[in-house]
Design a protein around this nucleic acid. Sequence first.
DNA 1: CAAGGGTTTGAAAACGTTTTCATGGAATTC
DNA 2: GAATTCCATGAAAACGTTTTCAAACCCTTG
Lengths: 356, 356
Amino acid sequence: MLSCRQVREMANETLTILDIAREAGVSPATVSRVLSDQPNVSPKTYEAVKRVIDKYDFKPNSIARGLLRKHSYTMGIILPSITHPYYAAMFSAAQEEAGHAGYVVQIYRLAYNARITDAFVDQLIERRLDGVLLSGGFVEPKDLSELPAVLTRLQRYMPIVTVCPPIPGLTCVNIYTDLALGMRKAVRHLAALGHRRIAFIGATDETRSVGERERGFYEEMRALDLAALTVQEHIHTPAMGEMATLRLLSGLPRGEWPTALIVVNDLVALGVLKQLHAMDLTIPDEMAVVGCDNQFFSAFTTPPLTTLEVNAEEHGRVAMQQLLRACAGEVKPFTQVREPTLILRASCGADRHAPR
Amino acid sequence: MLSCRQVREMANETLTILDIAREAGVSPATVSRVLSDQPNVSPKTYEAVKRVIDKYDFKPNSIARGLLRKHSYTMGIILPSITHPYYAAMFSAAQEEAGHAGYVVQIYRLAYNARITDAFVDQLIERRLDGVLLSGGFVEPKDLSELPAVLTRLQRYMPIVTVCPPIPGLTCVNIYTDLALGMRKAVRHLAALGHRRIAFIGATDETRSVGERERGFYEEMRALDLAALTVQEHIHTPAMGEMATLRLLSGLPRGEWPTALIVVNDLVALGVLKQLHAMDLTIPDEMAVVGCDNQFFSAFTTPPLTTLEVNAEEHGRVAMQQLLRACAGEVKPFTQVREPTLILRASCGADRHAPR
DNA sequence: CAAGGGTTTGAAAACGTTTTCATGGAATTC
DNA sequence: GAATTCCATGAAAACGTTTTCAAACCCTTG
């Protein structure tokens, strides 16, 4: 008996279903049936074929299979950065969900300031993906109008599920968390704690998901007749948060300082906290801080960060479930809005109560 | 929204190279040549074919192409968790590098406590990946002996590049950072600052990369004749770091406390810092802390964390370069060891000097 | 024993490309 | 003007599966 290795080296070319068929004394069709566990193959034949398959450790070529079945068993996901903990968490859950159904997920990275071009979706089309998840929160509003055309073209080839608010002009499944509502909750909480001057640290109108947050912030501030402050910058890293905080505070006389900061996301809040420490401000007494996203590190900052739970894993999982169903043709377009919850921690006084 | 199936039915049949050929009045061979920009096609014909391709927005099916060319233009990467910032950074760089060469990278997730089984590598083989990156630091030593057999089988189908120390019995390209050396540097630095009692917070003999760190720690502690302490637990989350720190310190009379903690990685260090704050210890005066990995958040902890730079991006990029070359058949097995550098920040007194 | 039903099986045609090989024509050389 | 080379093109054979269709077989039943 030869070892697998010797067998293969002797063969000197890849083993195919034909080789197995010949050795087992059956037709390739029968081997195919055995490989995909189809019915209508007699136990005796099954055994014989199985034995040969095992002997050579034969694995069918899924590329050839895909060509015929018209499925690549591959999903795509479009996101700006896998090193961002939010997207990493979402992707991870989506991938796990897809894995159960025998699919793999490929990441198609689109830089924060890049547009979804025809050339970009061409990649997905050429790879003949079965479906695509679009985590489109990072799209810039100015690029929004050109999106429907590009994505409708993509949709001719594969179903799309977005993990962001609906894109006007594109009908598909949308799963997202209402961050404007989240921001309103944050404002209400701070107001209930007695804060009257609150600043929003995060770029203005930069990306859709940031725009949402900002809109919610202003709406609630206006509704409660509070004094809203903000910094008009492009902010999406801890270092930028550090600088923005410095700029905001040093630009105002101490008497006009806000007493609370709402930060666009927890990543940026890292830098904000650092700057506040550097300025020797006690948190939350001299300055309360609320973040957004509830990252893995948010419970471990000093002090622990009050933040909005957006449940990235849940997003990824649910969205992938819908995408899988869409690939099976069992889904009508719909939009699911999820509600973020405020996680109370010490950075704005965890012991006090949240507003109803 | 339409399912894959419905889309196809609408189109009534997918456009193929034959349709293009017919309309352009040439043979499929010529269309193929135009599509892959091969020489030997006259400008006139090229133009005519190109026009038809653009008219229908035709994209060749890369699955069919892959079948013939025997390349999937897909790499795999085996890692335990993409939400871990180290792996996310490594993957991201690897993917970018692969993208330049027209490859995509698929993540194959292997849980921390799982073994690389035959069934696991079967996935990679069936998908006919072109190559695989194994970030094998998370392998448990007790599973090390069974690895060569499984991976050698995999190697019959595709080249492997590891991003961990060589696996005994497996010859391939290995790229890794000498973390034992890094730990020795950390110990030397602390010793130079006057510390005599130092604890290592991280599991004992849990995974290979942790084992490496621990080994370096003990070696240098012994060499300098210092008092080494440790906790014997499975530690790989911030919350575990928090508990371990509490257990370590509350188990000792104050006079026997270490004056410095070396933590297995920055993620765990988050929890350690939190616990030290909770116990009202000033850092670094009452307790110095050194982490490992230099994550994006490490400069933003309170105080900023002294840590070892292991350059995950660099790892990912270089390893992928090697893998690409291996796929082109231009590589001999070799091992590249990289040296980590100590990043000095306030958590152990950034203003003081590192030992040479 | 013939008819009828069900189950197994194999031949052959896909799937959508790429690539090899041969051919005819144009361009170059002597 | 003939001989030679080179280039552009198409026919056809791959690539490794799955799937359809029909034939063959084995049991029942009348």
